[in-house]
Write a protein that binds this DNA or RNA. Structure first.
Ligand SMILES: [Zn+2]
Ligand SMILES: [Zn+2]
Ligand SMILES: [Zn+2]
Ligand SMILES: [Zn+2]
Lengths: 167, 167
DNA sequence: TGGGGATTGATACAGTATAACATATCACCT
DNA sequence: AGGTGATATGTTATACTGTATCAATCCCCA
């Protein structure tokens, strides 16, 4: 299993592809990919980084007219439900899904695992599955019914571990 | 691998054992297990449940004299560093470690995996390891240096899945 | 045409966590 | 005893993250 997010790539094309896929998936699922939601998604696609809701709020507010928190959180909720972005629990932040091409929208077996750089906040996403998340056996043995999973690692990305390691 | 936390047990003895182990571990590591820290730890040991910092704050404040947030957060920081409790990222909450007997204080290979009941907040803790967290391979392949991990599942505990399942 | 669902705007507030500075305590050295 | 530094606690204020609520708007369609 490999992780997407750190390697060099055609990022402008990466954004265009993601937007196109989002349009088509929302259309298929009869979800409204409105301008407000698209704008928030674009902001998250700018870098492969986790951004807080208020970071997004600030960028949205650059254009003079004021934007309130609910606007951002509503867009984030929509994008999360649509499977276009993920919440990074460790950071109380959000990042665009990097594996849109690899799985379907409602694919419950999609168990994303994240590699989070504590220095630059870059996030890489690996495709985990239920057999390797270290929880399935324990849950089965104890009768626990798993509904959602969080698998995240924090550390230093390749770029940041070159330079000074200490925070 | 099994998970501790759901099964019936001698909970009073469970608390006493944990306190004793905490005393001895802090003494060995030359850490000060002060009354304030001990009190917060005792509160977290009361149930095998995740508690928010402000839940703890409220209980601490029951005795008339006022307690401020930093008091609680400092005690939580200490207990986290000492390995006596864990933070549950999914809930922005804290729970006492249930596997004190199984690993050493500074044991970096201790990769706890949590089963979190969304209804009663009971938390079970399973001992994961690096080979099953679904991240090690991806990290190695991309040159990412993992420092800390979060593995959490949310769902319904055995007791809560008996009754009504819907929230 | 007008009713109903989904979306957005706006205000206020709730919940989580930390910064900053003062004070207290204790071990240790002189 | 007195000074000194490390650690811990008290206190106030504030920053960061997320929701509740109600009004206004838009759009599709019976
Ligand atoms: Zn890209
Ligand atoms: Zn980095
Ligand atoms: Zn117990
Ligand atoms: Zn439960």
């Amino acid at each position: 299993m490999t992780a997407l997010g750190f390697e060099a790539h055609d990022h402008s094309g990466c954004i265009d592809d993601a937007l196109e896929r989002a349009e088509s998936r929302c259309h298929d699922a009869k979800l409204q990919f409105t301008p407000a939601r698209r704008r928030v998604y674009e902001i998250l696609l700018q870098g492969h980084q986790a951004m807080g809701a208020y970071d997004i709020l600030e960028i949205l507010g650059k254009g003079g007219h004021s934007v309130q928190p609910p606007t951002v959180y509503r867009a984030l909720d929509f994008l999360l439900r649509a499977g276009l972005i993920h919440r990074i629990e460790r950071l109380n932040a959000y990042a665009a899904c990097m594996l849109l091409a690899d799985h379907d929208a409602g694919d419950a077996s999609h168990v994303p695992a994240f590699l989070i750089c504590r220095q630059c906040r870059t996030v890489a996403e690996a495709e985990g599955d239920r057999s390797t998340d270290g929880l399935t056996d324990a849950a089965a043995a104890s009768g626990f019914v798993v509904e959602t999973r969080v698998v995240e690692a924090e550390g230093l990305c390749p770029a940041c571990s070159e330079g000074g390691d200490r925070p």
